Amino acid sequence: MSVEIIELNKGKSFKKEVSFIYNKDTISYDGEDISFVRPIAVSGDISSSGDVITLIAKVETELELTCSRCLEKFNYPLNLNLNEKFSFDEEIEDENIIILNNDNLDITEVVENSIILTLPMKKLCSEDCKGLCQNCGTNLNNQNCDCDKDIIDPRLAKLKQLFSDD
């Protein structure tokens, strides 16, 4: 959704309610396509005070992520609060203010960037996810495997001798 902010550019105090729902199929992040399970719902206000335009909004959606440990897909509900500041004045020295170069503010772009920024670094289907077996690739959440767990990297084999009980 794009908001025309010509009247906000004139330095007048102004407030406008923003509420919309839109569909997005996927979003690319870190070489991975992340799917949306539910539409993105945005509600809040856009206001102007002096040269600064403020967007305060709540964003709700649900994503389908891939677990970093077991590689299974899982749903990740996302509720985030936006508080973004914009200005047309390029001489403002506040690093938290985004400089605008036209009279339209694309809120969907701001929302999608915020969604990407709030994604967890390590995406886990659950805190106690066991992951995959390093040898056979079995998902250890679903079944156990018979692989030897004491396989040691040959470069570190001498260290094992230091800690042996013999």
Rank of each mutant, 00 (worst) to 15 (best):
S2R: 03
E4N: 05
I5V: 10
I5E: 05
L8K: 00
K10T: 13
G11A: 13
G11S: 06
K12P: 02
S13E: 14
F14Y: 06
F14Q: 00
K15I: 07
K16H: 09
E17D: 11
S19V: 07
F20C: 03
N23R: 12
N23E: 14
I27V: 09
I27R: 00
I27P: 00
I27H: 00
E32N: 08
D33S: 04
I34L: 10
V37K: 13
V37R: 06
V37A: 14
R38D: 09
P39L: 03
I40N: 05
G44W: 00
D45K: 04
I46H: 00
S47N: 04
G50Q: 05
D51E: 14
D51Q: 14
V52I: 13
I53R: 02
A57E: 01
K58S: 15
K58C: 15
V59K: 01
T61W: 01
L63D: 02
T66H: 06
C67W: 05
S68R: 07
S68P: 06
R69K: 11
L71R: 07
E72K: 03
Y76L: 15
N81E: 08
N83C: 12
E90A: 15
E91C: 10
I92S: 00
I99W: 08
L100N: 02
N102K: 13
D106Y: 13
V110W: 05
N113T: 13
I116W: 04
L117A: 15
P120L: 02
M121V: 14
C125A: 03
C125V: 12
S126I: 13
S126L: 12
E127L: 08
D128I: 15
C129W: 04
C136T: 14
C136K: 02
C136G: 14
T138R: 05
N139I: 08
N141L: 08
C145W: 01
C147S: 12
I151Y: 13
I152K: 13
L159R: 09
L162D: 08
F163C: 11
D166G: 07
